[in-house]
Amino acid sequence: MNVLRAAFAIALKDLRVERRNREVINAAFSFALVVLLLFSFTFDPSGEETREMSGGLLWLVFSFAGVLVLNRSFARETSNDCLDALVAAPVPGAAIFLGKALANALLLLVLELACLPVFGIFYNVRWQVNFGWLLVVFVLGTWGFTVIGTVFSALTVNVRLRELMLPLLVFPVTVPALMASVQLTTALFSGQPIAPELLWLRLLVGFDLIFTLLGVALVETLLVG
């Protein structure tokens, strides 16, 4: 079966299951809102310094909320041993990985777009100015974060302390993608053009490509013990 078609089928299944039970999106969105609210009490929302660290603040929230999304990605398959059904099916491991990563990325993107207006109000940030480029950065940054997270989600699916292990493994490896996303987001929030920051954009694209290929190559070994 075509890898992409199988990946879409798996992603669609994950999104359908999530639409039914909303166990991930509700928890992640509530968590993100609480963190945004708590940070807004800590910093002076009108301060120039706050705006300068706005990108970092936002991606910190996205990363923590993202781990909640990633934790359930493969764990969802452990009920009724459904992961065995996926591994035994005549689809390549790459399709399972890409399908899972796609569903995770879409869920996280929905979460990010829902948080953005709230962030704008709490921190007095004009996020609409460069929204097109901001969307590009969100898509690239989220994909980079989720491909790494999906690989480690597969790796830790049968680990007892999965919820603790996953962030410990994911955050160090995603540092380059997060740094690039933070720099670009901060620049775009400040109303600057993207041109001086193109190096970060290239880094993000390169990171996404390399880790997507690595994930595709590694996942079968991780899933078949």
Binding site: A9, K13, R16, R20, S79, N80, D81, P90
Partner: peptide, 24 residues
């Protein structure tokens, strides 16, 4: 196998549709 390999949150129809997709 030991597990039943069906998704609790999908209907019977959707479960079979999903596996039909995977089996081409």
């Amino acid at each position: 196998g030991h597990g039943i390999w069906v998704y609790d949150d999908l209907t019977a129809q959707e479960n079979l549709e999903f596996f039909a997709g995977l089996y081409g």
